[in-house]
């Protein structure tokens, strides 16, 4: 599903990634772990089309990223994003936030998903009016509403307590079981155990 070949990335003089190659299978749940500054976020940004690497090549589903002509459409159809911060649009309700991302705009479909994530009852509230765990679940709903082939999550539990973090990873696990490819970056080696495979980074290289 995702093939990365000899990825190098530097920010100015700083080398963040130093020759990373990996292959992630369809439907696989992979966690990138490593110390702060090891390059997890940088790698995730590159694999998810957000960042252009200084060197190397990423191929998603047989398509070279730099050769994709309409990256917007590609993201819409292929990729879901979850970040450490929820980035829900504050003036829209939870339902509207998910609807904004939805291609079909199908109300039943949106509510089914919200129900599944346990946030249907707060669908009409705004992001300011709900708990951190609920926000992150809402942002997961927004990320998966179009059934993307790949879900990228950078520190999705970074702002959550133990219990909520556990829940989020379990949800990711479920989506993975349904065939979605999941790539997360996390500090938490315990949580990472839920995934199929843990890739450990150190100083920009795979350990």
């Amino acid at each position: 599903m995702i093939k990365a070949k000899n990825i190098i990335h530097h920010y100015g003089q700083d080398i963040a990634l130093d020759g990373v190659s990996l292959y992630i299978n369809r439907g696989e749940f992979v966690s990138l772990v490593g110390e702060s500054g090891s390059g997890k976020s940088t790698l995730l940004s590159i694999l998810s089309t957000l960042l252009k690497p200084s060197g190397g090549e990423v191929v998603i589903d047989g398509k070279k990223i730099d050769e994709i002509s309409n990256i917007d459409r590609f993201r819409k159809e292929y990729i879901g994003f979850v970040f450490q911060f929820h980035y829900l649009i504050p003036y829209l309700s939870i339902y509207e936030n998910v609807q904004l991302a939805s291609i079909s705009k199908n109300k039943d479909e949106i509510f089914l998903l919200l129900e599944r994530l346990g946030i249907a009852d707060i669908a009409n509230k705004s992001a300011d009016a709900i708990s951190g765990g609920q926000r992150q679940r809402a942002s997961i709903a927004r990320a998966v509403i179009n059934r993307p082939k790949i879900l990228f999550a950078d520190e999705p539990t970074g702002n959550l307590d133990m219990k909520n973090s556990q829940k989020v990873f379990e949800m990711l696990r479920e989506f993975g079981n349904e065939g979605m490819t999941i790539v997360t970056a996390t500090h938490d080696k315990e949580l990472a155990k839920i995934s199929d495979r843990v890739i450990s980074l150190k100083d920009g290289q795979i350990e």
Binding site: G37, S41, L50, F81, F83, F85, Y87, E155
Partner: peptide
């Protein structure tokens, strides 16, 4: 606006 900005810079 570059969406890569959304990636949390962690300790940085």
């Amino acid at each position: 606006i570059d969406p890569v900005e959304l990636i949390n810079r962690g300790s940085r």
